[in-house]
Design a protein around this nucleic acid. Sequence first.
DNA 1: ATTCGATTAGTTGTGCTTTGTTCATGAATG
DNA 2: CATTCATGAACAAAGCACAACTAATCGAAT
Lengths: 92, 92
Amino acid sequence: MNKAQLIESIQKALGAETTKKHAGEALEAVLDGITKGVKKDGNVQLIGFGTFKVSSRAARKGRNPKTGEAMKIKASKSVRFVASSNIKKGLK
Amino acid sequence: MNKAQLIESIQKALGAETTKKHAGEALEAVLDGITKGVKKDGNVQLIGFGTFKVSSRAARKGRNPKTGEAMKIKASKSVRFVASSNIKKGLK
DNA sequence: ATTCGATTAGTTGTGCTTTGTTCATGAATG
DNA sequence: CATTCATGAACAAAGCACAACTAATCGAAT
C-alpha cells in the first residue's frame, strides 16, 4: 500500500463528503503530529496501534561493504515502533 | 505523547474549524487504514515517514520469566517500522 | 471528575534480527 | 522533475522479541 491508496482508504472511512484533498490533509496532520511528538517527547503511544520510540545507537565499528575497509559508524538515533497486540492480530 | 495530545496536534494542523471529534476521527481513519493495509498487502510505505512491514519469527525456545521454566514460543508475525531518513532528522 | 475494562509495562535469559557503513543503479513517489 | 527508496555486497555487536503473570496505565463512557 502506498500513500495514495491509504488516502482512498481514509476518505472512505471519513465518509462521502470528505474529499481526497481533505483525506490527504488529515494523513499529513497525523504523520506530522507523530513526527513532532516523537521528536519532542521521545515517544508517541497509540493504544491499540503501537508506540513510536526514539532509539539510540552508540558509535561502533563497521565496514565499507564494497572495499571491506573498516570504518567507524557514528552514534545515531532512529525511530522504532513497538507493535501493539491488537495490530498483530490477523496478520498472515 | 498520548492519543489525546496527538488529537490536539492534528486539530491545530487541520485548522480552527476542525473539532476535536473530527480530529479524532481522522486519526482513527489513518490508523485503521495503515492497519488494514499492512494486513492486506504486507506493507504500507509512507514516503518521508517510514514503511510498516509484516515481520515473521520462527518458533523458538523461551522461558517463563517468573519461574524460569523453559517453554516454547510459537512462531509469530508482527509489524515492524523502518523509519525514513526524513523522520530521523532532528532527533535528540 | 470518576470509573473500570482493555491494554501495556516490567520481570530474566537467550538466540535471532537489525543496524549501519559506500556507492551505483534503477524504481517509485509525489 | 526532484527526492526518496530499495537493492546488494561482508560483517559483528548491539538490540530486541518473547514466554506467564501481576501491577500500572490508558482512555472511552458516564
